[in-house]
Structures are given as C-alpha cells and as structure tokens.
Amino acid sequence: MIRKRWLLVFSIVIFLTGTFLPQAAHSRILEVTVTVEGLACPFCAYGIEKKLKRVEGVKSIDVQMEKGVVIITGKDDRSVNIGQVPGAVKDSGFSLKQMKVRVTGIARKDGEKFLLQYGGPEELLTLGDMKTEQKKQFSEYIETGKAVEVQGIVQDQPEGSWTLYPESLKGISP
C-alpha cells in the first residue's frame, strides 16, 4: 500500500515537472536566418540547400534569393546545430555574412555573464551587449525560472563558444 502511494506521488511529480516547469529539454534553437553573399542563381543555390539540410536538427530550408537569406527551421524535438552552419555555407561556395537565431531556453547567470541554456548543460549561449532594461528583464527570468525566447545575431568566439546579441527577448508561457 505504501509502495503504491509512493509510486503515485512519483508519477505526479514526473507529470508536473514534465508539463508545467521550464525544462532545458524543451529548449532549442528554433530558427536560424542566415545572410549569404554570392547567391546569384537558383541552380547554384541547390548546393546550399543540400549542405544546410545536412546540418543536425534542420527540418526545412527556405532560400530567399532576392534578400540573400536562407531561413532554417529546426526540428520540433531538436536544436539546430549552429556550429555546423558556417562550414555548410563555405562548402557550398558562398560567403556567410550574418547568422540570426530564434532560440528558447532557460535564463542562467555565471558570475557577471548572462547565459541562455538551450539544451543540455553544455549548450549555452553567452548573451552580449545587453541593454540595462534587457539585463533587468533577463534577471527576472533567472529568479522566476521562466523559460525565455531570444532573437538576435550570433557570433562564434575564438574559444569555440557562441555569443548571442539579443534584439528581443520575452518570457514564454509553459
């Protein structure tokens, strides 16, 4: 009887944490907007479609020739591996100008550094050049543990990490 009760409590805890609490597992890079230079013909653009579709976590690609932009949509259960995008663009014979992401994750802080955890413990983006208002807003998300969606430009750093320069951030309801 006691065993059954514990099993019931355990199941409720699992259900609640899985449904209502923000989870790193639910966080991911949802969309990447890649500005590509050199895209002058659709036949050549096939190379970039093919290369970017091989990037981990990519569900679909939308090439917008006129704007020189490729929009990558991530899979529902997986983050787009942004580390593979620059190589894919280079191998297709074009130049990467800029990469913007839309990412959901958990707000964290490490010393003075604001971080966004968008997956496992190693999947972290350092938030750079934040305005005072953004820092205040982000600190609230850290305190409340609310999941957050951030959009902004990402840049890789020499040590291999990524910095996200937020253009917008908002808390997301569970």
Partner: peptide, 12 residues
C-alpha cells in the same frame, strides 16, 4: 580552380 571570389548580396 576558382582562385578568386568576391561575394555580395545577390552578386558573385
């Protein structure tokens, strides 16, 4: 061998 390339938006 393409030894030189200059890319811009919509131009190569």
């Amino acid at each position: 061998y393409r030894f030189w390339r200059r890319d811009g938006i919509g131009v190569q």
